[in-house]
Simulated scan of single mutants.
Amino acid sequence: MSLLKVAIQSAGYEKKKEIIQNINFTIKKGELVGLIGPNGAGKSTTIKSLLGLMEFLDGEISYINDINYSYLPERPIFYDELTLWEHLDFVAAVEGLEEKVFKEKANTLLDKYKLSEHAHENPTKYSKGMQQKAMLVLAMITNPLLYIIDEPFMGLDPNAMKLFLESIEMERNRGAGILMSTHVLDTAEKICDRFLMIHDGHLVAKGTIEDIRRQCQLPNGSLYDCFHMLAEGAENEK
């Protein structure tokens, strides 16, 4: 079942000044799709298009009926005057979560990410790694059916990264779909079901790692090898 269907003909901040063109893909229940590309390729524009933040968009973005999704930005964002617990309480109120269920879920996540002792502190004062973990807790509190994640590994130490990977695997097993933008290609190759490779605003390849290897004619190539071959090929075609 497709949780999200994307058919973007073009999108940008102004009409006739498109940043991305011909971006088409789906996200299904329980799958993790990696959004891959260099800086400036159009990954952020693609994500902003999904979130309805682009001023100009020609195409169609369709979410399954009544889906709830969570967005994890590349850089953590918090309200200056709220503690982490108050952030969680605010999200619960907006989403209409039952108080007992909310508190049980919140305490479980805070304990799992070792943030229980800091729940009543202002997250703007946290370390970078703690802020990333706080954002994950806020994203997971509503049990979303779809995650849109932008560069999740920034600021995470190895233990926190392991915990994050275990968490998203648990969410996938629950049936959640995940679109994850990342530059960490070796990790992406190990955990993603499919890939979307964007270069210069265009989708230059998509599919499983086997699909990508066939397109590149690199039967034993790594995701890193394939990406650079496709990127160089796109540059040469200009």
Rank of each mutant, 00 (worst) to 15 (best):
I149E: 03
A119R: 12
L97R: 11
E166D: 15
Q132E: 07
I20F: 08
H199F: 15
H118Q: 13
V137R: 00
G175M: 12
E14K: 15
L82G: 02
W85I: 02
Y79R: 11
E60T: 15
K43V: 03
D150N: 07
D193N: 14
G201L: 09
P123E: 06
L138E: 04
L82H: 05
L223D: 00
E210I: 14
H183V: 04
F153K: 00
F25R: 05
N39E: 04
K15C: 08
V94D: 02
S116M: 11
E86I: 03
E171C: 02
I19H: 06
E189H: 09
E210T: 14
N220P: 01
M135F: 05
R194E: 12
A134T: 07
E121M: 14
C226W: 10
A41K: 03
V184P: 06
Y63E: 09
H120N: 15
Y71C: 00
N22R: 14
D186G: 04
R213L: 10
C216F: 04
K112W: 07
M130S: 10
I61D: 08
G34D: 05
M54D: 04
L72Q: 14
L230Q: 10
R75G: 07
F153Q: 00
M140D: 11
V91T: 04
Q9D: 12
V91H: 00
A188W: 05
R174I: 08
N107L: 13
R174S: 13
L109Y: 09
A234D: 15
E121Y: 15
S44I: 08
A119Y: 00
I141P: 01
E210L: 13
R172L: 08
K105T: 14
K125H: 14
E81V: 07
L50R: 09
A231I: 05
L185K: 02
S10W: 01
F227A: 11
F153M: 03
L218R: 07
S10F: 02
L156Q: 02
F56C: 06
L165P: 01
V94F: 10
L179G: 01
V94N: 05
Q217N: 15
I23W: 13
F90W: 11
L179Q: 04
K190A: 06
P144I: 01
I198C: 08
L82M: 13
A106N: 03
C226R: 10
R172N: 03
E18W: 13
I212N: 02
L196R: 01
G207T: 10
I209P: 01
L51P: 11
K100E: 15
N220I: 01
L32V: 14
H87C: 05
D200W: 07
K100I: 14
G37P: 09
L163H: 06
I20T: 04
G37T: 08
L84I: 03
E74P: 09
E55D: 14
D186P: 02
M54Y: 06
L51V: 12
N159H: 09
S62Q: 15
G175S: 08
L53A: 12
S181W: 00
L57S: 12
S70C: 06
I20L: 09
D193F: 04
P38G: 11
N159D: 10
L156T: 01
K28H: 15
L136Y: 08
E18C: 06
I61H: 11
K133N: 00
N173P: 02
T46M: 07
S127T: 10
L109C: 07
H202R: 15
H120E: 13
A160R: 01
L203E: 07
H120K: 14
N39K: 06
